[in-house]
Every structure is written in structure tokens, then in C-alpha cells.
């Protein structure tokens, strides 16, 4: 926990003419940490990343890498390397030339370059691809080369701008795992931008959820999933049932059912429950009355759609448990875990 801060962003503000952008973003990334900026498109995550890379000039604020401000440096002088969303290998160069380009600029010796390129290709599992052209490679392979090119620069911070979003799901998973391995073996500090929550949850040491140019929450994936701090985060990460209720004197009224809550919240609220936290019993038990509408088996688990007076609730159950439920059946629901947000925060 005492690792030093590698990248520090302080009160970064960048507004476009369209009104989009970011305001007052402050965050620290520690040495060797993989932090994901997660949010819907237009939330400003790419703006932050590109500002760090030097491709955007912020209106105000500071960006420090290893304690030194890099704000005045152009991209080519910054100790950062970027992996772009589109495979931006140079099509007129071979893989070797693509990888060696940056090293040649640094006036590295030929033998050293050859060794470094070979090692980098080994790391991204493409040994022997030196003489191929980018057009001869698949999308996944191209992006591997792009990662290798960034790694070769030995950046202080590696920036990844939705690098796998153009790939199909299976390949995406593979590359995610590989990236994680590379990160663990190289101890590189990485800043990863994505709109794919699954990617963020599986990859990151820490997730920073952004919305409309602001940071909503910055926590470990576990915490982000279990205790979303705002309604936006609750909505954005994972599946969530949202129920309207009224809080008063330490309890929340959802239709005819009363739920215990902390006494410091009152008025109209939204109760958020993960589908896996919904529990059911026979209708004779106390709880939220519901009718089974549909049972859908989705591989190892089943998704059950339930009709209640408060709206539709979805519940995840292990496949075997779902077998006893049939549509039309009346049940009573309770929640193993839930979160409450004031309704005005929508």
C-alpha cells in the first residue's frame, strides 16, 4: 500500500465547444496499478486519457508523472505510451519496422533493437512475426503488436484507449487475460479506458466510474459491484432491480411491504437489488408478493422474471433451484442485500 504515486491528475478541466468534457478531475494512480476509467460514451474518460498522453491540452489542472508535471511536454516527449482503439499500426511497415520505429528514434543500437523487438513479440505471443505486414495479421494480432509497440517504449504509464473493443468477445477475453499477465510480470502502471463494465471488472485493480465529466466512484471492482455509491453506478455496473419506495423513520415502504433501512434517509427513494440477492419463499411467508412470469435457463444459472406491484423484478438462481418454480406461481420475495438512493439523484 506504500507504493508511490506514479500518475497524479489534479483538478483537470477540459471543456469542448459542444459542452462535453471533464471538470475538476483529480485522481492518483500508484506504481504498478491498473486503473480503469469506466463510463458511458461521452462521459469524458477518453478526454482524461488523451490529456495524459498529451494529445489534448487541458483548460486547467495539472498532470504529474513520477512527481513531475508533464503538462508542457508534447506527446513525443512524454513518458507515456498509448494503445489506440483502432489498430494504428503503420501499414507500409513490417511488424519489425513498426516496433523498431520508436527505438530507432531513440538512437538505440541495431542489435539492441533486434533483441528488444524479439522479446516484445514473445511477450505478446507473436514470436517470428517480424517480417509480416500489418495487413497480413488478424485484428487481435494487430492489437497485440500495438501493445508490444507501446511496451517497447518502457513507458512510465501505459495508456490504453478501448484497445479491445473492436475485437470479438472470445478474442477480447483472451487479450484481457494476456494484458493482465503482462501487467503482473512487467509491473507497469496502466490506465485503461473502456465502456465495457465486464472488461473493467475483470481487469482492474481499481475502477474509476465516470459520468458527465465527473468521477462517480473510485474503488476496487469488488466494492464497485457490492457497494455502488450512487444510483448511477448502481445502474451502470451489473444488473440491478430498481424499486421505488418511500422511506420514513428507519423503514422503507415498497407497496405493501416494509423494508428496514437506516433512519437518516427519508422521502422518495430507489431501492437497488442485484438479481442474485433476491430470495424467494412460499407466498405464506412475509415479503414482497410476486408472481412468477417466466423462468429462463441461461446455462449454469436461471433468470426468473417476477411480477410485483412495484414492477418487474429479475432474480438469478442456480439452475437446479429454479426447477421448482413455474410461471403463474405466487411467491414472496426478500432481499439478502440492497442499497437505497434518494430518488432525486437520478
Amino acid at each position: 500500500m506504500t507504493a508511490q504515486v506514479q500518475l497524479s491528475i489534479q483538478k483537470l478541466t477540459k471543456r469542448y465547444k459542444t459542452g462535453e468534457g471533464v471538470t475538476g478531475i483529480s485522481l492518483d494512480i500508484k506504481q504498478g496499478e491498473l486503473v480503469t476509467l469506466l463510463g458511458p460514451s461521452g462521459c469524458g474518460k477518453t478526454t482524461v486519457l488523451r490529456s495524459v498522453g498529451g494529445f489534448l491540452e487541458p483548460d486547467s489542472g495539472d498532470i504529474q508523472i513520477a512527481g513531475k508535471s508533464v503538462l508542457h511536454l508534447p506527446p513525443e516527449k512524454r513518458p507515456t505510451a498509448m494503445v489506440f482503439q483502432s489498430y494504428n499500426l503503420w501499414p507500409h511497415m513490417t511488424v519489425y519496422e513498426n516496433l523498431a520505429f520508436g527505438l530507432k528514434i531513440r538512437k538505440m543500437r541495431k542489435e539492441q533493437i533486434r533483441d528488444a523487438v524479439e522479446r516484445a513479440l514473445q511477450l505478446v505471443r507473436l514470436p517470428g512475426a517480424e517480417q509480416k505486414r500489418p495487413t497480413e495479421l488478424s485484428g487481435g494480432q494487430q492489437q497485440r503488436v500495438a501493445v508490444a509497440r507501446a511496451l517497447l517504449l518502457e513507458p512510465a504509464v501505459l495508456l490504453l484507449d478501448e484497445p479491445f473493443s473492436a475485437l470479438d468477445a472470445k478474442l477480447r477475453n483472451e487479450l484481457r487475460e494476456e494484458l493482465r499477465e503482462i501487467q503482473l510480470s512487467t509491473k507497469l502502471t496502466m490506465m485503461f479506458v473502456t465502456h465495457d463494465q465486464e472488461e473493467a471488472l475483470s481487469l482492474s485493480d481499481r475502477i474509476i466510474v465516470m459520468n458527465r465529466g465527473n468521477i462517480e466512484q473510485s474503488d476496487s471492482p469488488q466494492q464497485i459491484y457490492d457497494t455502488p455509491k450512487s444510483l448511477f453506478v448502481a445502474n451502470f455496473i451489473g444488473r440491478m432491480n430498481m424499486l421505488d419506495g418511500i422511506a420514513e423513520n428507519g423503514s422503507i415502504q415498497i407497496q405493501n411491504w416494509e423494508l428496514h433501512a437506516s433512519p437518516d434517509i427519508s422521502g422518495k427513494v430507489v431501492v437497488a437489488v442485484r438479481p442474485e440477492d433476491v430470495r424467494w419463499k412460499d407466498a405464506s411467508n412475509p415479503g414482497l408478493a410476486a408472481t412468477v412470469k417466466q423462468v429462463m435457463v441461461l446455462g449454469h444459472y436461471a433468470e426468473i422474471t417476477l411480477l410485483t406491484e412495484a414492477g418487474i423484478i429479475r432474480m438469478f438462481l442456480p439452475r437446479e433451484e429454479a426447477l421448482v418454480l413455474s410461471s403463474g406461481q405466487s411467491v414472496s420475495l426478500t432481499f439478502a442485500k440492497h442499497a437505497v438512493y434518494p430518488q432525486s439523484s437520478v
Binding site: 506527446p75 513525443e76 505510451a81 498509448m82 489506440f84 494504428n88 503503420w90 520505429f101 528514434i105 509497440r149
Partner: peptide
């Protein structure tokens, strides 16, 4: 991005 990539590697 091809040009930005080149900038990024220090060109």
C-alpha cells in the same frame, strides 16, 4: 491515429 501513434513513440 497513425500520426498520433508516431508522435506517441517519439517521432
Amino acid at each position: 491515429s497513425a500520426i498520433e501513434g508516431a508522435k506517441d513513440v517519439g517521432a
